[in-house]
Design a protein around this nucleic acid. Structure first.
Length: 901
RNA sequence: GGACGCUUAGCUCAGUUGGUUAGAGCACCUCGCUUACACCGAGGGUGUCGGGGGUUCGAGUCCCUCAGCGUCCACCA
C-alpha cells in the first residue's frame, strides 16, 4: 500500500480519480428494478457560459445528493446539459460580428444561425468541462442541449399539441419591446428599476378657447405627437365642463384631440388630467380601446422617432427626442415646468435598456394546468425547501398572465406555423401548424419568429429522457427515472422555469394518471444567492466573482466544495468569504493527516468491510474513550442522516467537521498515543480508528469525493477494482446493530467520565498557561479527590500525563498553598507551593468564587420559585438541583482554597 | 402599495420542536516545530442576541409593535 504523504496535494489526486471514474463509467445511470431510482436533471447553464460561484454552489449540492444516493445503494442518474439561451447567445455572437463591422443582416438568417452554431461548437460546453473539474458526477453520455435536433423536435411537438388543444393563439397586443435586442419579452424578463427622471408639466390649449389651457404631467414628452386625447376622471369637478371639448397637440403634426372621461384616471395625481398615447403605454392603450381612439405609433422598433413624430423629432433616438421635445415645448410656451422625478422604469433584463410598450403581433400561451400546478405544491406532492418559496410560487400562479412566447430572433426554435402565400395572416384558416411543415412548402411561408428559450427548457425533465417517443423513452429509462427526485436551483427562476416545468409535466406526462406520477420532481431545493462583501450579487458583468478554477487551483476542488457548502445554510443568501474555502482545504489536510497517523501507527489490518473491522473490536478491553468515540460516531451519523432528510447540508458538514476534528483528532487520536504503546490495547485501538475513519470517509464522500476516494484506497477499505461510491453506507441503525452484535454496549457512565476528563485536561492546561508553564512537559500535579473521581483519574493517568504535558499526577489528602483549580474530578494543584504568587492567586480565586456565587444565586432563585418547581418537567427540575449541588460544592472548595492561602 | 427574508462576538454566520453559564470559522493576543498535521497544537470572549411590549415557571427561540437593511410582486402618467 502506498505511503500517505505529509500533506495533501489535490491536483494529481483529482485528475487521477476523475479519469478513473469516467473510464469505469461510474456515473452511468442505469435502470435497475432491484434498486430505488434517484435522478436529478441539471438546471442547464447557458451554452456559452462559464462557471460562476453560483454554479459551484448549485452543482456541488446536486453532486452531494447524487453521490449520497449512490452510496445509499440507489441507482443514481444526474443528467447534464446546456441551454441555447436565445437572446444571450445571439447577443454574444452579434457582438463578435460588430467587431468586424457587420450585423446579422449582412449574413441573412441561415448564414447567421450557422455562425451561432460555429460559436457553440467552439466555445459551447466549456462550462461542462469546468463541472468535471469540480467533480460533478454527471452521466455525461446523456448530455443534452435544447437545440439538439431530437430535443428541438420535442419542443415543436409541445407547441403543436398546445395549439391543437387551444392554448396557443396569435394576437396584436401590447408587449414589452426591447429596442436593443429588437424583440418582444415576457413580463418576467422585465426588471423594474428606480430611475431619476424629469417630470414635464405641459399645457394643451383649448381649440375653442384660445388662451385657456389644460395641464398634464408626463415623463415622456417625445410621445406627445402620438397623443390622441386628454383623459380626466368623470367625477372630477374641475374638468366636467371641458369633457367633449378639443385641445391642440402642442408639438408634432398639428391636430385637435378630444378631452375624454375615463375611470382609469387618478384625480389625485398631478393636475388630474392624463395625456393618452395608445401606442406607447398600456393604460393608454386600454383607454384608447374603450373610447375607440386611433393609435399613432411614433417610434421605430429600435426606439428612434419616426415620421409620425413630425419633422423636428423624426430620426432622433427616443432619449434625444425627449430633450428636443422639451425644447420645442418650451419654445412654444407649452412647457409649464420641469421637475425632478423619481419613478420606476421597466428595463430589459438582458440588454439593460428601458423597454417600450409596443403594439405587435405575437404568439401567446394560455398556461395549461394552472390549478393543478397550484395543488401540486399546496398539497405537498412537490415540496419546496425552504417551504416559504411556495408562497411566492402560489402568488404568481394566482395572478398568472398569458405568456408571450414568440421572439423576434433568429437563434432558437422557429415557430412551426406556416402562412398561406399572399393570404390574410390574421385568419387561422390560412395557417398550417405542424412539426414538419406543409406538404407543398412552395405555397407557404414559415413564421419568422422563434420561441422564447424558456418555452424549450420548460420541458427539460421530460424531453431529456426521450419524451414523447416511446422508443427513446424506453432507452433513456423514462419510466424508471421520471419524476426526478430533486431539483436544485435558485429562487430567481421560480417563475421562469420551476413553475412552467410543473405545468408542462402535468399537461403532458402520463395523462390520466395520478398527480404524483406526472409532476417533474418531488423536491425542490432553492439555494441562496452568492454575494460579494458589499452584498452585491456576484456576476460576470460586475467582475466581483472569483474564478472558481482559480479557487480549485489554490484550495483543491474538495476544499472549494467543502467551503462553499459550509457557508450555505438552507435558503439564505451568502456573503462569500474566501477564508471559508481555505478552511475547507485545511479540513482536507486534517483528514489526510489523521489517516496518515493511522497508517504510521501500525500495520494494516483487515479493513475490507464494516463486519471485518467490527470483528476486530475487543469490547472487554474498551475504556471510556472507546465508548465515547463510538457514541459520538453514532450521534454524528444520526445527525448527518437527519440533515440529508431535511436538506440541511451546511449543518451536515459542520457536524462532520466538529466530530472529526474535535472528538476524533483532538481527543481520541491523542489518547491513542498511549493506548498504542501497550500491546494489550493496541489492536482494539487500531480497530476503532479504522472503524471511525471508514464511516467518516463514507459520510464525507458526497461532499469531498476526491480525497475520500484516495484515502479509501490507501487505507485498504476499497474492494479490488471498486470505488468508494460503489460501497454501501450503513445507516445509524445498521451501524449500531453491528456493534451490538459484537457485544459492544455503550456505557453511559464511562462516557460521562470522559467528559469530566476532557474538562479536567482543559483546566489543567489552563492552570499551566496561567503560570507560564504551557510548554513545559515536566510539571508535577497533585490532586485531592474522592475515591470514584480518583478511580477515573487513576485509570487514565498515562493518557492524562501525555495530553496535559505533565511529569506526574499524584493523589494527596491535603495540599496547602499551591495554585489550584476545582475540577469535576477533584481539586488539581500545581506542585509549586514555594514559588506561588499568593496575591495573584487570591485575585484569581476570588474572581472565580464571585462568578460561581452569581450562578448559584440564579439557580437558587429558580429552584425557590414555586411555579418553576411545580410546572417544569421533572428532568429539567432534577438537572437544576444537580447543578445547584455541583455549584455549591465548587463554591465551598474555592472558599476553602482561598482560606488556605 | 402588498409579500417574504434578515438584524446574535471585530468580520461572516450557526443556533431543529422554548429548558443549565448562547456557539463556529476567520481575525487578534500569548506560548509551542511534544515521533499525523505550523494547512498544526495549547491557552485567551464583560455579546444590551436591533429597540419596546406581551405570553410563559422559563424567551435568542413564540406573539404584537417600531426601526434599519435586502429581495420579489404591483400599469399611477
Amino acid at each position: 500500500m502506498a505511503e500517505i504523504t505529509k500533506s495533501y496535494e489535490a491536483r494529481d489526486v483529482e485528475q487521477k480519480w476523475y479519469a478513473a471514474w469516467q473510464q469505469a463509467k461510474a456515473f452511468e445511470g442505469v435502470v435497475d428494478a432491484s434498486r430505488a431510482p434517484y435522478s436529478i436533471v441539471i438546471p442547464p447553464p447557458n451554452v456559452t457560459g462559464v462557471l460562476t460561484m453560483g454554479h459551484v454552489l448549485n452543482n456541488t449540492l446536486q453532486d452531494v445528493l447524487i453521490r449520497r444516493a449512490r452510496i445509499e445503494g440507489k441507482s443514481a442518474m444526474w443528467l447534464p446539459g446546456t441551454d441555447h439561451a436565445g437572446i444571450a447567445t445571439q447577443t454574444v455572437v452579434e457582438r463578435e460580428l460588430r467587431k468586424q463591422k457587420k450585423t446579422r443582416h449582412d449574413f441573412g438568417r441561415e448564414k447567421f444561425v450557422e455562425k451561432v452554431w460555429d460559436w457553440r461548437h467552439e466555445k459551447g460546453g466549456i462550462i461542462l468541462e469546468q463541472l468535471r473539474r469540480l467533480g460533478a458526477s454527471c452521466d455525461w453520455d446523456r448530455t443534452a442541449f435544447t437545440m439538439d435536433p431530437a430535443y428541438s423536435k420535442r419542443v415543436l411537438h409541445v407547441f403543436v399539441e398546445l395549439f391543437k388543444r387551444g392554448h396557443i393563439y396569435r394576437g396584436k397586443r401590447m408587449v414589452n419591446w426591447c429596442p436593443a435586442s429588437l424583440t418582444a419579452l415576457s413580463d418576467e424578463e422585465v426588471i423594474m428599476k428606480p430611475v431619476n427622471s424629469t417630470m414635464y408639466r405641459v399645457r394643451y390649449e383649448l381649440a375653442a378657447e384660445p388662451g385657456r389651457f389644460i395641464e398634464v404631467k408626463t415623463t415622456r414628452p417625445e410621445t406627445i405627437p402620438g397623443d390622441v386625447a386628454i383623459a380626466v376622471h368623470p367625477d372630477d369637478p374641475r374638468y366636467s365642463s371641458l369633457i367633449g371639448q378639443k385641445v391642440r397637440r402642442p408639438i408634432g403634426p398639428a391636430a385637435e384631440i378630444p378631452i375624454i372621461a375615463d375611470q382609469a384616471v387618478d384625480k389625485e395625481f398631478g393636475s388630474g388630467a392624463l395625456k393618452i398615447t395608445p401606442a406607447h403605454d398600456r393604460v393608454d392603450y386600454e383607454i384608447g380601446l374603450r373610447h375607440k381612439l386611433p393609435v399613432i405609433d411614433v417610434l421605430e422598433a429600435n426606439g428612434s422617432l419616426n415620421a409620425e413624430a413630425g419633422e423636428d423629432l423624426a430620426g432622433l433616438d427616443r432619449f434625444a427626442g425627449r430633450k428636443k421635445a422639451a425644447e420645442l415645448l418650451k419654445a412654444n410656451g407649452a412647457l409649464v415646468a420641469e421637475e425632478a422625478y423619481a419613478n420606476n422604469v421597466g428595463y430589459s433584463e438582458r440588454a439593460d435598456v428601458p423597454i417600450e410598450p409596443r403594439l405587435t403581433e405575437q404568439w401567446w400561451l394560455r398556461y395549461p394546468k394552472v390549478e393543478e400546478a397550484k395543488a401540486a405544491v399546496r398539497d405537498g406532492h412537490i415540496k419546496f425547501h425552504p417551504e416559504r418559496w411556495s408562497k411566492v410560487y402560489l402568488h404568481w400562479l394566482e395572478n398568472i398572465q398569458d405568456w408571450c412566447i414568440s421572439r423576434q430572433l433568429w437563434w432558437g426554435h422557429r415557430i412551426p406555423v406556416w402562412y398561406r402565400q399572399g393570404a390574410d395572416r390574421s385568419d387561422p384558416k390560412n395557417w398550417h401548424v405542424s412539426i414538419d411543415g406543409p406538404a407543398d412548402p412552395q405555397n407557404w411561408e414559415q413564421e419568422s419568429d422563434v420561441l422564447d428559450t424558456w418555452a424549450s427548457s420548460w420541458i427539460w425533465p421530460m424531453a431529456t429522457m426521450g419524451w414523447p417517443d416511446e422508443g427513446t423513452m424506453k432507452r433513456d429509462g423514462f419510466d424508471y427515472f421520471y419524476p426526478t427526485s430533486t431539483l436544485v436551483t435558485g429562487p430567481d427562476i421560480i417563475f421562469f422555469w420551476v413553475a412552467r416545468m410543473i405545468m408542462a409535466g402535468l399537461e403532458f406526462v402520463r395523462p390520466g394518471e395520478p398527480i404524483e406520477r406526472r409532476i417533474p420532481f418531488k423536491d425542490v431545493y432553492f439555494t441562496g444567492i452568492i454575494r460579494d462583501q458589499q452584498g452585491r450579487k456576484m456576476s460576470k458583468s460586475l467582475g466581483n466573482s472569483p474564478d472558481p478554477l482559480d479557487l480549485i487551483a489554490t484550495y483543491g476542488a474538495d476544499g472549494l466544495r467543502f467551503g462553499i457548502i459550509s457557508i450555505a445554510p438552507q435558503g439564505q443568501d451568502i456573503r462569500f468569504q474566501e477564508d471559508r474555502i481555505e478552511s475547507g482545504k485545511n479540513f482536507c489536510n486534517k483528514l489526510w493527516n489523521a489517516c496518515r497517523f493511522r497508517q504510521m501507527s501500525g500495520e494494516a489490518a483487515d479493513n475490507s468491510s464494516l463486519a471485518a473491522i467490527v470483528s476486530r473490536l475487543e469490547p472487554p478491553r474498551f475504556d471510556g474513550d472507546d465508548h465515547a468515540i463510538l457514541d459520538r460516531l453514532l450521534v454524528t451519523t444520526r445527525e448527518v442522516e437527519r440533515c440529508f432528510r431535511e436538506f440541511e447540508f451546511s449543518a451536515a458538514v459542520q457536524a462532520l467537521y466538529g466530530f472529526f476534528w474535535n472528538d476524533f483528532c483532538d481527543w481520541y487520536v491523542e489518547v491513542s498515543k498511549s493506548k498504542l504503546q501497550s500491546e494489550e490495547t493496541r489492536g482494539n485501538c487500531l480497530a476503532i480508528q479504522d472503524l471511525v475513519l471508514r464511516q467518516t470517509l463514507l459520510q464525507l464522500h458526497p461532499f469531498i469525493p476526491f480525497i475520500t476516494e484516495e484515502l479509501w484506497s490507501l487505507l485498504g477499505y476499497a474492494q479490488p477494482g471498486a470505488f468508494l461510491q460503489s460501497a454501501r453506507i450503513e445507516d445509524p441503525a445498521q451501524l449500531s446493530a453491528s456493534l451490538e452484535q459484537r457485544g459492544v454496549s455503550l456505557n453511559r457512565a464511562l462516557i460521562e467520565a470522559v467528559d469530566h476528563l476532557k474538562t479536567f485536561v482543559s483546566q489543567a492546561r489552563a492552570l499551566k498557561a496561567e503560570h507560564n508553564l504551557a510548554s513545559r512537559r515536566d510539571v508535577k500535579f497533585l490532586v485531592t479527590a474522592g475515591d470514584p473521581a480518583w478511580a477515573t483519574l487513576h485509570a487514565s493517568t498515562g493518557k492524562l500525563i501525555r495530553i496535559v504535558g505533565a511529569a506526574e499526577l499524584t493523589r494527596r489528602d491535603v495540599v496547602d498553598g499551591a495554585p489550584a483549580v476545582v475540577t469535576p474530578l477533584g481539586t488539581l494543584y500545581l506542585d509549586l507551593a514555594s514559588t506561588v504568587d499568593v496575591g495573584a492567586e487570591k485575585v484569581r480565586l476570588t474572581k472565580e468564587l464571585e462568578a460561581i456565587k452569581k450562578h448559584i444565586g440564579g439557580t437558587e432563585a429558580r429552584l425557590s420559585n414555586e411555579a418553576f418547581v411545580s410546572k417544569a418537567p421533572p428532568a429539567v427540575l432534577a438537572g437544576a438541583r444537580k447543578q445547584l449541588a455541583d455549584q455549591q460544592a465548587k463554591r465551598d472548595e474555592l472558599a476553602r482554597l482561598l482560606g488556605s492561602l
